[in-house]
Amino acid sequence: MTGLSETAAKRRKQLLRFISRDLLGPIAGKMPKSCVESLEKASFHADINRHILDIVPMTQARIVRHEVAAKLPPFIRTEAVFGKRNLYLLRNATVSPHSGMAWIGNRVLEESVGSLRRIMDWGDVQHEPLLPASELRIPEPVVVCHPASYYHWLLEVLPNVLFAVAAFPGVKIVLPENCPRYVLEGLATALGPGAKRDFVFCSNPIRVERLVVPQYHAQPEFTDPQVLELLRSAVKTRVAPLQGTDGAPGSATRIYVSRGKSRRRLRGEAELEERLREVGFSILHCEELSFADQVRAFHTAEIVVGSHGAGLSNLVWCEPPCRVVEIFPKNYILDCFAWLGFSLGFDYRHVICDTGHEIDERAMDAVLDAVR
Score class of each variant (00 low, 15 high):
residue 287 E to Y: 01
residue 280 G to P: 09
residue 294 Q to D: 12
residue 296 R to V: 08
residue 299 H to E: 15
residue 302 E to Y: 05
residue 275 R to H: 15
residue 281 F to T: 13
residue 271 E to P: 01
residue 295 V to A: 11
residue 284 L to K: 00
residue 283 I to A: 08
residue 278 E to G: 07
residue 303 I to T: 14
residue 271 E to Y: 05
residue 307 S to T: 08
residue 279 V to Y: 06
residue 272 L to Q: 12
residue 289 L to T: 06
residue 278 E to W: 09
residue 303 I to A: 02
residue 288 E to F: 04
residue 291 F to Y: 03
residue 301 A to C: 13
residue 288 E to L: 00
residue 282 S to A: 09
residue 277 R to C: 04
residue 286 C to Y: 01
residue 275 R to V: 13
residue 306 G to S: 08
residue 291 F to V: 07
residue 281 F to N: 01
residue 306 G to D: 02
residue 288 E to D: 07
residue 293 D to I: 09
residue 296 R to D: 00
residue 283 I to T: 08
residue 298 F to T: 09
residue 285 H to Y: 11
residue 301 A to W: 11
residue 276 L to F: 02
residue 301 A to D: 09
residue 272 L to W: 11
residue 273 E to Q: 09
residue 280 G to F: 12
residue 285 H to W: 10
residue 289 L to V: 00
residue 299 H to G: 14
residue 277 R to D: 06
residue 282 S to P: 09
residue 300 T to V: 13
residue 270 A to G: 06
residue 293 D to P: 01
residue 295 V to K: 03
residue 273 E to S: 01
residue 282 S to W: 07
residue 299 H to K: 14
residue 305 V to C: 12
residue 306 G to K: 08
residue 297 A to S: 11
residue 275 R to S: 14
residue 284 L to A: 10
residue 290 S to C: 04
residue 302 E to T: 12
residue 307 S to I: 10
residue 296 R to E: 09
residue 271 E to V: 14
residue 290 S to Q: 04
residue 294 Q to T: 09
residue 293 D to V: 11
residue 290 S to L: 02
residue 282 S to L: 09
residue 280 G to S: 10
residue 305 V to W: 12
residue 287 E to S: 10
residue 270 A to D: 10
residue 307 S to D: 04
residue 288 E to M: 10
residue 273 E to N: 02
residue 297 A to Q: 07
residue 278 E to L: 06
residue 291 F to H: 02
residue 282 S to V: 07
residue 285 H to T: 10
residue 279 V to C: 05
residue 285 H to K: 03
residue 298 F to R: 04
residue 276 L to K: 06
residue 305 V to L: 07
residue 289 L to C: 12
residue 286 C to K: 13
residue 288 E to T: 05
residue 278 E to S: 10
residue 279 V to L: 07
residue 292 A to I: 11
residue 297 A to L: 05
residue 283 I to E: 09
residue 302 E to W: 12
residue 291 F to C: 08
residue 297 A to Y: 04
residue 288 E to H: 07
residue 295 V to G: 03
residue 294 Q to S: 07
residue 304 V to S: 04
residue 273 E to R: 06
residue 275 R to F: 13
residue 286 C to F: 01
residue 302 E to D: 11
residue 305 V to K: 13
residue 284 L to W: 00
residue 271 E to R: 14
residue 271 E to C: 08
residue 279 V to N: 10
residue 284 L to P: 04
residue 272 L to T: 04
residue 300 T to F: 01
residue 275 R to P: 11
residue 302 E to I: 07
residue 294 Q to M: 05
residue 298 F to G: 11
residue 302 E to K: 07
residue 302 E to M: 12
residue 292 A to V: 15
residue 302 E to H: 11
residue 292 A to Y: 03
residue 290 S to V: 00
residue 303 I to Q: 14
residue 270 A to E: 14
residue 288 E to K: 10
residue 282 S to R: 13
residue 278 E to T: 06
residue 272 L to F: 08
residue 293 D to Q: 05
residue 303 I to V: 15
residue 275 R to L: 15
residue 307 S to E: 15
residue 281 F to S: 01
residue 298 F to M: 05
residue 299 H to I: 01
residue 282 S to Y: 01
residue 274 E to Y: 05
residue 284 L to I: 02
residue 290 S to E: 03
residue 282 S to G: 14
residue 270 A to V: 05
residue 300 T to W: 10
residue 303 I to S: 13
residue 271 E to K: 06
residue 270 A to F: 08
